[in-house]
Amino acid sequence: MRSKHVVQVYDVVGLGTDALGIVEEYIDGEDLWNSQFPKISLDNYLKTLWQVASGLADIHSAKIIHRDIKPNNMKLDGEGVIKIFDFGLARDEGANAKTKGFKGTPGFAAPELYSHDTVVFSRAIDTYAFGASAIFFTGTALPPCLMQIPPTALPPGYFLTLPLGTPKVLGELLESCLFTDPSDRPLMEDIKNEIARYLLKDKHQAIVIHNGNPQYLNSETKSVQLELTGIGKVEIAYDGLHFKVVSVSGEIYINNSVPQVGTILPASCVVAIGATYRHANQRAFITFDVSNPEVVL
């Protein structure tokens, strides 16, 4: 497998008669157990979570379970790129995904791993460990309920009590990573995408063009009203994540559909005022294009 956020294997070499060596990418950097980076700001915290979630989503899409996700197994390199390493316990999904006896790291190991019998596990154990790491990255010690054997459920709303001010929706998602029932935990791919939206919070921009004149909507200028008197009126506002219709009346069409209050504008669209039966001078067309800076790590 290959991922921007997973340490690459370069080579396998024979060492003597019955030993093998694995040559891995060397990351000149600090591991995230010791790093201050995630704790410095919400932006750094989200960048950390997003990169780890991206690496895990890539690992899972290759049908591999890492089995030992924890901050000591992640490194931050000099270019600001975070990579997951130590596949010592990794398994392919499926029939082999079971083990006897506890393997893992207390605090980061999911409750289902503490069973006395043969344990069948899934990628959701990595999701659990990701959730525990997300607590650690705020600079908070893992709470007693996670350190119990086996760990018990977090008090609801736990992430909202942590430093750095994780947004509510995201906090609830991170909390769901630590649900006791593995099937209740979200997919890493979905977690990655949700974090990406918050990384770009307040950073979107829409260019609104009428008759060749551009006007910008962003976190500073949050709303615009488009109106053709007596024919139609629509107000569009930016909530930090989306551009949404906040009020609409008369003949308004967005990409040829009739919008409602709450409709999210697509990335690129034309707002038409005036229905098709009207004369050209009773209609107006405004292009609306949303963009954002790219987070390149």
Partner: peptide, 10 residues
Amino acid sequence: SPGGGANRAH
């Protein structure tokens, strides 16, 4: 991007 009747290219 999605549109009524047909998607819109841009």
